[in-house]
Nucleic acid binder design. Structure first.
Lengths: 201, 201
DNA sequence: ATTCAAATTAACCAACCGGTCAACTTGACC
DNA sequence: GGTCAAGTTGACCGGTTGGTTAATTTGAAT
């Protein structure tokens, strides 16, 4: 079986962090290796290319994130509460990242997508897939809310896309302005989009 | 006075196009020079650095764009019509870019912002400034609409930010999916955000 | 026609890029 | 405790990066 190692995991986590705090272009294989405490030869022992490593890292990161989203969007929770809890999770995560790295980092999938979608087909396809999956969380919450008569939303997928575009836009602004307070109005904006008065849940 | 040249303008336009169709990271000085038909020595005759060129290019591009925005958001137009016309302009521009480059390119300011805002302070500040100016177009249109009783929006700046985040999110999706049809629902989403029924203007 | 500031050119630089490779070390399994 | 697959290492590669320089050409203004 040969010896074992956690170098691959360290490389994955290093790449995620470097892409998130910087960009794909500024994240060099050398930097990843340095941060992970791994020599470049080992990098190419585990990954056939920089792109392949990024693909694995994105998949890994999304798999981690899904665990929490599955909890947040549990059908046990009231439909709109799922969305508000998701926003609260966003805020918490962004706050933690600001405390850790001194900057609000926004959504890595979106920042990466903006950078590479015209350049790298494989990365773009993977990012599309992840974002499509994410929208489904909003979609089912919206559909449930509609069926329960909480909101008027006959076209749940369309409304989910609107809500999603808005949320991602806000996260990007928070990153650009390095300011968490942009996220405070997230729920207020979502209420307007969903057509929920402030007084109601 | 020495000889004159339009090399600087050609470099600016080349840089804008390369950033828009690709990314800041993949846009090398060599590529810019090649596209502009200019030798690298001349590049550094006109600009002290790649960043300086990008700064000038962004400023130039925004100045061009403002001319049209000033027309679109002319107080002569009905408040909400300004916004719908702005969206129509977005769609037209994106369609033209797709015809020209084979891809939907989205908003270069935002894509660039996502990429460089944690890396390059000067670029980030300039992009922030431009986006802040853009929001003001929405803001004044919303304020006018509120004052005329067309919509209920006591906090125009906040609603403008929501609308803006949504629009930018949609443009990014159009870029990532290379699909103009994402923009078709722009007005419908905006109507929900602004609280305007489909029947009314 | 002369002048001279401004534009152009090509050669050059060190650092870094993604990627390769053959030699070497390790440790899980029998 | 020996085996051998798997992990590690450091040197190496050609190409590209952002940036520099000194010599040269140009043309607008006098």
């Amino acid at each position: 079986m040969g010896r074992t190692s956690d170098a691959k995991e360290r490389l994955i986590e290093a790449m995620i962090e470097l892409i998130w705090t910087g960009s794909y272009g500024t994240t060099s294989v050398d930097h990843i290796c340095e941060k992970a405490g791994v020599k470049k030869g080992s990098f190419y022992h585990f990954f056939e290319s920089k792109t392949a490593c990024a693909l694995t890292a994105i998949e890994y990161s999304w798999a981690e994130h899904r665990k929490q989203l599955d909890q947040t969007f549990s059908p046990v929770n009231a439909p709109l509460d799922r969305i508000w809890k998701c926003f609260a999770d966003f805020q918490r995560e962004q706050r933690e990242m600001q405390e850790k790295h001194g900057r609000v980092l926004g959504c890595p999938i979106h920042s990466l997508g903006a950078e590479v979608s015209t350049i790298d087909d494989k990365l773009r396809d993977k990012l599309q897939e992840i974002l499509s999956q994410f929208i489904r969380y909003y979609e089912s919450a919206i559909r449930d809310a509609h069926y329960q008569g909480i909101i008027e939303a006959p076209d749940a997928p369309a409304l989910a896309r609107i809500l999603f575009a808005y949320g991602e836009g806000l996260l990007l602004h928070a990153r650009m302005w390095n300011d968490l307070s942009h996220l405070n109005e997230m729920e207020a904006g979502a209420r307007r989009i969903l057509g929920v008065p402030d007084s109601e849940s």
